[in-house]
């Protein structure tokens, strides 16, 4: 014990230093964004943009982005999208995955082929846009939810999870007089909580982060999600005609840009630590058998 101590200590010290540095590379960018958002713009410029600890704190950047209430409108859209969208995603994914996981289902491989096909080939942006337009979803928040109701990959994950559940459970329930719905709700779902949590999380994060569909389908400001609001603040300098006389006027100060980054990512960052374990679990769910 005694003679290894020195090497043990050295090794431990080395480990700690390396890991601290590694942690710092992850933490510093966050710290930087938060610090800049709280620093007076003149100090940011004076220090060439590199502020890790502000010498004094100002909330003007936050006041500026809260003005006009557009942020809150955008949040309403995003929250609607995340909550309703994820619920519908789950409903459709689970109800599609269950039959596909049952060997008794006729034409199962045909349907599966159909699903896998969409994973490999897609119609592309313009045909999707045409469909959304023709069914009258343009400018509606439903255009953000309905086209992505079922994600083929997540469907496969849920399906393989359901396949692991012994079919004998179904049969037992059926003998006890349960119908298809109650088998799903009372037997299958309680047994599948890990996969439900994982996939639900994947869907929710996807809803939270996506902006491109909103960019295409939504024109009216009141239906724009928070990611578009963020994009607008960050890209406000873009007067695409490159008119030098106008460009300078429209740029948002870097502190306002950073404040909007903080405001739009804070909620998801705040929930992350609590649900993170499901993410790692989720990658393994349905993939490892036996």
């Amino acid at each position: 014990m005694e003679q290894v101590t020195i090497w043990n200590r050295l090794g431990k010290g080395l480990n700690y230093t390396l890991l601290t540095l590694l942690a710092a590379t992850c933490v510093i960018p966050f710290l930087y964004v938060i610090s800049v958002s709280l620093t007076p713009i003149s100090e940011v410029i004076r220090k060439d943009g590199l502020v890790l600890i502000p010498s004094h704190i100002t909330w003007t950047a936050y006041e500026e982005i809260m003005q006009g209430g557009r942020l809150f409108d955008a949040y309403k859209v995003t929250i609607f999208r995340v909550v309703v969208g994820t619920l519908l995603n789950m409903l459709f994914t689970v109800t599609m995955a269950l039959p596909l996981s049952r060997k008794a289902m006729p034409g199962r491989s045909g349907f599966l082929m159909f699903v896998v096909f969409t994973m490999l080939f897609s119609g592309g942006m313009i045909p999707s846009y045409l469909i959304v337009k023709e069914v009258g979803l343009l400018n509606s928040e439903w255009a953000l939810i309905i086209p992505g109701l079922v994600n083929a990959f997540y469907l496969m994950i849920v399906k393989s999870f359901f396949e692991q559940l012994p079919e004998a459970i179904d049969e037992a329930a059926r003998i006890d007089g349960a119908g298809e719905i109650s088998i799903l709700v009372r037997i299958i779902l309680p047994l599948s909580m890990p996969v439900i949590a994982t996939i639900g999380l994947f869907y929710a994060v996807w809803h939270w982060n996506s902006y491109f569909d909103a960019l295409l389908y939504i024109n009216s400001p009141e239906n724009q999600p928070v990611q578009l609001f963020l994009r607008q603040i960050l890209l406000a300098s873009v007067a695409i005609s490159g008119d030098a006389a106008e460009a300078a006027n429209s740029v948002n100060p870097v502190s306002v840009q950073m404040a909007s980054v903080v405001v739009t990512t804070l909620p998801i960052v705040a929930v992350y630590p609590f649900i993170q374990k499901h993410f790692t679990k989720g990658v393994l769910v349905g993939s490892v058998k036996g």
Partner: peptide
Amino acid sequence: NTIGYRQTTPMPA
């Protein structure tokens, strides 16, 4: 409109 000076600011109702 590609020539307005605030291209990323959406138009109100």
